[in-house]
Design a binder for these strands. Structure first.
Lengths: 202, 202
DNA sequence: GTCTATATAGAGATAGAC
DNA sequence: GTCTATCTCTATATAGAC
């Protein structure tokens, strides 16, 4: 699965390129084998270096998982907010919600293994990292909650809908797309259409 | 988190009770720490025995994860099908779909850590076990697909809906409820109402 | 920056006493 | 059925040469 650089593209000293290769390998293996199941020898081998050399770039295994998790959610949050903001300050809640949904779906696709890892191994990460990740998720969730509240006040959701439940359903539905079988792959735009059809009143 | 017996209640020889305690502990730890992150000493300690004694009940760690995964999906499938069948052979698709949704949600609640483990560690399990679990998931998915096809042919879904996408969205939305925060807990019946509101046409 | 070599700890699994 | 004791392997992390 493809993945995107966690660093700005201009940061391409040799050290940065290796560091990036290590992170990409870690994301891929964390997603498939879990946190404890991923060993650093395999990460190093996939990044084209030896195990001992990892420690020039990272102090410990914890740091790898921290970077992978943090980057994933930051990327999604930034993209969703940017897509909403791009509609301008006077956009109504329907288009904003659709933009956020499509951007979140697209960000998951961009993230590749970083998204998979982020969704699968949070609970397995060491406690301080897990806590930090939960805090980031909470902030992102609150952002979505405001989008949904505005949608409801503008009357585009069905009456009597449970907003908190709706947000959690929507999030799991969106995030689940990263594990859909190949036969079910659809563009972010198509998926956003389908989700808007479910979430908003006909 | 509570969990339910993986064996019939009448099977309560001492050996069976210990075996059950081991499986419950394994489910709890697999769900929190992943497959590789769960060590057998901790499983044994939580079941009230020493590590070596585990091997009287199970040949290897693989066998533990196999039992935990297999039991979870079997339980959900049985409950969903039983709830649909209980409506009788002439029930229409709307009530059938609602019964399946509520039964699936209730089964997840019953399963407790078995459900969490089943959702989180499939990818981390050894290949033969993973393959078997995917096959079971596929069969269960096909069952849901037929329910949704009947619902569509009876006209209770919105027009132009993508049935495969709908099933996958619905599944992830239902399964995600097991990780909802305490503040968002709702009964299976309430959750089923909300999901039916999203899935069916107003 | 990356290598080889190694210290140290912890894992799964087995053997045999009770 | 459960225990203690132990084998063997593999993991993270460190040290120092290049």
């Amino acid at each position: 699965m493809a993945s995107i650089p966690a660093q700005a593209p201009h940061a391409q000293r040799k050290s940065d390129r290796t560091r990036q290769a290590v992170l990409d390998a870690a994301a891929r293996l964390f997603a498939r084998r879990g946190y404890a199941g991923t060993n650093l020898s395999d990460v190093a081998a996939e990044a084209g270096i030896k195990t001992g050399s990892l420690y020039y770039h990272f102090d410990a295994k914890d740091e790898l998982v921290y970077e992978v998790l943090r980057f994933g959610i930051a990327h999604s949050f930034e993209h969703a907010r940017a897509a909403v903001d791009a509609l301008g300050p006077h956009a109504s809640a329907g288009p904003q919600l659709r933009a956020a949904i499509e951007a979140h779906l697209a960000s998951l696709h961009d993230l590749g293994d970083y998204a998979l890892a982020g969704l699968r191994i949070v609970e397995q990460a060491p406690q301080p990292i897990r806590r930090n990740q939960y805090a980031n998720q909470r902030r992102y969730g609150e952002y979505w909650q405001t989008l949904l509240e505005r949608a409801q006040s503008e009357g585009i959701l069905s009456a009597g809908v449970d907003l908190l439940a709706l947000r959690l359903f929507l999030f799991d539905a969106m995030n689940g797309t990263v594990t859909w079988p190949a036969s079910a792959q659809r563009s972010s735009s198509e998926l956003a259409d389908q989700l808007m059809r479910l979430v908003t009143r006909a």
